[in-house]
Nucleic acid binder design. Sequence first.
DNA 1: ATTGAAATTGAGATTAAGTTGCAATAAGAA
DNA 2: TTCTTATTGCAACTTAATCTCAATTTCAAT
Lengths: 156, 156
Amino acid sequence: MEKVVLIFKDYLRKRGLKFTPEREVVLREVFSLHKHFDAEQLYQNLYKRKKKISRASVYRTLPLLVRAGLITETLRCQGRTSYEHIFGHGHHDHMLCIGCGKVIEFRSEKIEKLQKEICRKYGFKPVEHRLGIKGYCRECQKKIKMKKKLPLDREK
Amino acid sequence: MEKVVLIFKDYLRKRGLKFTPEREVVLREVFSLHKHFDAEQLYQNLYKRKKKISRASVYRTLPLLVRAGLITETLRCQGRTSYEHIFGHGHHDHMLCIGCGKVIEFRSEKIEKLQKEICRKYGFKPVEHRLGIKGYCRECQKKIKMKKKLPLDREK
DNA sequence: ATTGAAATTGAGATTAAGTTGCAATAAGAA
DNA sequence: TTCTTATTGCAACTTAATCTCAATTTCAAT
């Protein structure tokens, strides 16, 4: 944890930005969470714990953390930009269950390698990539079977 | 083109929905385009050509086309939901150039296969997936080299 | 062809996420 | 400690998308 504080401080100092209490609170909150989150959730968490930080500051801090290489945007669920931290966590891809919203993380070296190859073929210099698979997790598949029919888009 | 009209009509009829002139106009516009588009663009195109269709109808029709399996959402650029048609086009993945916005489409059977394998391993039933690689295309890499430095996030 | 239930339309109001302007404040280098 | 410059909070604003509702249209059944 103190490591990420140092990294962030360093990032800020190098471009003449300031390490404020607000930014520190956001940073620590982000790294105390161990799953995906979005700006509003983060704000609510802090608000409940009487950390009086404005929404604007939360929204302004998250992009800084992205640029500092500490967090990254993930798959966008229902309209909100969602983040996760990447420091000491490494890149991975996601499966997102349409039924219950559960997120499964996975990593495949083979897929990573294939992507690089393809980029090379197109003369494309990759900066980041995102692979998201939507579908149904084991549990939700069972539920669906029990209901026999998916009520989502059935025919008349 | 007439094929997609039939498919859409069929989709609608089967669930007691109606094939209206507005929906037809949207459908035809979508399939006359040959690249990615978003709801607002589509509305503007139609508006300029004096097709008086409300924004609401455009926004209401696109999800129907998705459900009918004719179009799909793609990578979200700058906040807007973007679509592309898939009928007679097949699944593919994308590279998105950060420099100029160009989209390169590609498809890798190997990656597709690996994804299926991974899903099987997790007992996950995939419905759709999206792989997007952001980076710099050949041309933009050259431009960057000429500028010697990327002005985006440089240190002081 | 007519009818009538049910779906659809357009216009504008509304929501939600995120951004911005600005005056007051605070960080931190000198 | 001083002083320049960045940051803050608030509220107003923007943007994308959705919703409400009265008027209209579709289309299956006469």
